[in-house]
Simulated scan of single mutants.
Amino acid sequence: MTAMRFAHETLGQRVLFGTGAAGEHVAAEIERLGAARPMVVAAEPERALAETATAGATPVLWWGEVAQHVPVEVAEGARAAAAEHAVDVIVSVGGGSTTGLAKAVALTTGLPIIAVPTTYAGSEATNVWGLTEDRTKTTGVDPRVLPTAVVYDAQLSRTLPVELSVASGLNGLAHCVDSLWAPKADPINQAMALEGARALNLALRGIVADPQDLDAREQALYGCYLAAVAFASAGSGLHHKICHVLGGTFDLPHAPTHATVLPYVLALNAPGVPELAARLAAALGHIPADGQDPAVAAVYALNVLRETVDAPARLSDHGFTAAGIPEAVDRILDAAPASNPVPVSGAGVERLLTDALTGATPTPAVPATV
């Protein structure tokens, strides 16, 4: 057995979990921080949820302009408004784009964030920020953008439509899968990623069966939190590099893009890490049969889940076309991590994008048996 040797960093953050308790928890956190001038960031369609979550607070500013991939001009507008109103804390209520905008404000102001997620994006548990300018999405890591506290309330995600719940949950699952072999992957974040995958597998099935099932939605929040914590520690792997290009350059929707690309990246990478592939297959409910290649088992388990929950299946459904593949390949090759489990080539990325474009069946390239 190989001796373990790694460095693991755990991010400091308070997590308050309780269905129906968001208003109470947000108010308590504002008081704990000694803040008195909250800025609430929430897209207009989620204003009612934000009012519920901040019922015990008195915001001095409501900011409703939210856009996916956080355009620089939107971030600059929110920063200026925060300064004008002498804001001393940011409360973000919404999905990944909302949390991302709050992070963009915190990045330059140092203001603390109380994040109240209404989807399963997981951005609330990471110190990663992202901004888009001139069709290029730039990401970075900075301790200032890690929310001081996260308030999870399954009641706030109850109105999230099933289709969006599935895409968002699979986005969370992508954090799990990428964390298994990202540049700073270690046994601790791998363990959290596999438990997150187990929880999300069960949660998404439960939500599809009954969208009002609060137990399933609590499991989804639990799973996405573990996924995000693992991702924050392990770093961004090939899957996220691909999706950042597709989102920032081609303006594809964040969660459906992650949900669509995930099985193809898994099919590419799983043959290079058979032990981890076997553990992932088991976490997704399929213990590899005797003689079954672990990569095949992992891809099979993910495909069964995706079929069960009717997951997004083709990039063409979201506006991507074959004409964009050459530029995407060049950008992805520039960003691909050197530590990827298998070599990343232009031909390989082109094939992956072509398959994801058309919804071809993901198939791992496993060694032939003799």
Results as ranks from 00 to 15, higher is better:
208 V>E: 09
57 A>L: 05
196 G>P: 14
233 S>F: 04
240 H>R: 00
225 Y>M: 15
51 E>K: 12
129 W>E: 05
305 L>R: 04
369 T>R: 15
104 A>C: 14
318 H>F: 15
178 D>E: 15
114 I>R: 00
126 T>R: 11
210 D>Q: 09
176 C>L: 06
35 A>M: 04
124 E>P: 13
213 D>W: 01
32 R>I: 01
334 D>F: 14
166 V>N: 10
158 R>C: 15
303 N>Q: 14
311 A>T: 12
164 L>G: 02
115 A>S: 10
108 T>H: 11
367 P>L: 01
224 C>Q: 15
190 Q>N: 13
45 P>Q: 07
92 S>E: 02
225 Y>K: 13
67 A>E: 14
220 A>C: 03
68 Q>H: 11
142 D>F: 14
252 L>I: 12
151 V>W: 01
348 G>K: 04
246 L>W: 06
339 S>M: 06
316 S>T: 14
264 Y>E: 00
24 E>G: 07
310 D>N: 14
61 L>G: 04
238 L>N: 03
140 G>Q: 09
133 E>I: 07
250 F>M: 09
77 G>P: 07
289 A>T: 10
141 V>M: 07
313 A>D: 07
287 I>Y: 05
30 I>K: 02
248 G>E: 11
191 A>C: 07
146 L>G: 04
32 R>M: 03
188 I>Q: 10
19 T>P: 08
362 P>H: 02
287 I>W: 05
21 A>F: 07
83 A>W: 03
306 R>V: 01
351 R>M: 08
310 D>R: 15
213 D>K: 02
184 K>P: 00
357 L>T: 03
233 S>D: 12
167 A>I: 08
103 K>P: 14
25 H>A: 12
347 A>L: 09
142 D>T: 10
296 V>R: 05
350 E>K: 06
140 G>L: 10
24 E>N: 06
83 A>M: 07
148 T>W: 13
28 A>Q: 08
191 A>V: 08
217 R>A: 13
272 G>F: 03
347 A>P: 02
55 A>K: 09
270 A>G: 03
207 I>Q: 12
308 T>Y: 02
38 P>I: 11
103 K>Q: 13
215 D>C: 07
269 N>A: 14
94 G>T: 05
108 T>E: 13
16 L>W: 11
75 A>D: 04
70 V>W: 11
117 P>I: 05
170 L>W: 00
52 T>G: 10
365 A>P: 01
329 V>D: 04
5 R>Q: 08
280 L>A: 00
271 P>M: 05
52 T>P: 05
72 V>M: 12
270 A>I: 02
330 D>N: 08
164 L>D: 11
100 G>Q: 09
129 W>I: 10
299 V>P: 03
238 L>H: 04
253 P>N: 06
42 A>G: 02
191 A>P: 02
59 P>A: 09
351 R>K: 13
107 L>F: 14
51 E>C: 09
194 L>G: 09
260 T>Q: 07
184 K>Y: 14
247 G>I: 03
133 E>D: 14
178 D>C: 01
185 A>P: 00
343 P>F: 03
77 G>W: 14
4 M>N: 05
189 N>M: 08
75 A>Q: 10
360 A>N: 09
72 V>R: 15
149 A>N: 05
289 A>R: 13
63 W>N: 02
257 T>Q: 10
217 R>S: 12
266 L>P: 01
366 V>L: 00
296 V>G: 01
206 G>Q: 05
